[in-house]
Amino acid sequence: MKTIKHLLILAFLSAIAPAMAQTSESGFHGAEATKSRYRAVYQLNTGDTAVIHHALANIQNSLNDPRLKGKLDIELVVYSGAFVAYQKGKAYFEKELQSLQKQGVILAMCENTMKMRKLSRDEMYPFVSYVPTANGELIIRQQDGWAIIRP
């Protein structure tokens, strides 16, 4: 009986030890940014305004991370239904996008999506860049070591 009690106590302590080790008292403050450059491409393929805003906020959060200041290259690749994020007349996103671009974010639109949806460059914000296909861009960026992030 005494052995079972000791085993239960040991099991309990083993279960809570990892949780205790991750408290702020342990000194853990997240990963250390030891590289000179970090690169991430965010992919966005939905016209859901909440998801678009979430993606733009995530990008801004990355840019604001003190560990990554001055070390971060970001590209936002938009395709499929997400074309609305770059479409003129959708002032809903324009200011956020311009702010991100001023901070160095590449705003890329999939030309394949434009062709499929019969959209022209005149319908997009003038500060948007273009890639032949979003999938091709993501494949190339991933092979070049970029982190692929899908909000």
Rank of each mutant, 00 (worst) to 15 (best):
M109K: 05
N64E: 14
Q22G: 00
Q142G: 03
S62K: 10
I74F: 05
H6K: 15
Q143I: 12
P132R: 11
T3G: 00
A85W: 00
E137Y: 06
K118R: 14
H29A: 12
T23Y: 11
A108N: 11
R150F: 00
R39N: 13
A85M: 09
S62H: 14
P66Q: 08
E96K: 13
L72N: 06
L97C: 08
I74H: 03
Q101V: 13
Q101A: 13
I4C: 05
Y79H: 14
Y42K: 01
D73W: 08
E75S: 15
M124E: 02
P66C: 01
L56W: 02
A50V: 15
K2G: 05
T3L: 11
W146V: 02
I149R: 02
S14F: 13
Y125N: 14
Q22L: 09
I149G: 02
R121E: 12
G136F: 00
K95C: 02
K5P: 00
P132E: 13
N45P: 01
R141S: 13
L76S: 04
A33W: 12
I9M: 12
A11R: 03
S99W: 02
G136E: 07
G27D: 05
Q103D: 14
D65E: 13
A15S: 10
K88G: 08
L107Y: 03
A108V: 07
Y38K: 09
N64H: 10
I139G: 00
P151W: 02
N112C: 04
H6M: 09
Q142C: 06
K90F: 11
S24Y: 09
L119K: 07
I149S: 05
L72Q: 08
E75L: 01
E32P: 03
K69D: 09
P126V: 07
F127Q: 12
I59E: 03
R121P: 01
E94F: 01
Q143M: 13
Y130I: 08
T133S: 14
I16P: 05
Y92C: 02
L44V: 02
E32H: 14
G70C: 07
M109F: 03
M124Q: 04
I148V: 14
T46V: 09
A50K: 11
K5H: 07
Y42L: 06
L7N: 12
V78D: 02
Q101N: 14
A91M: 03
D73G: 04
Y38D: 07
V77R: 00
T133H: 10
L56E: 05
T113K: 00
G27M: 04
A21C: 07
E32W: 05
I52L: 07
Y86T: 08
E75K: 12
F127I: 09
F127M: 11
F83W: 05
Q98H: 10
L68H: 07
Q60I: 04
Q87S: 10
D122W: 01
L56K: 01
L44Q: 04
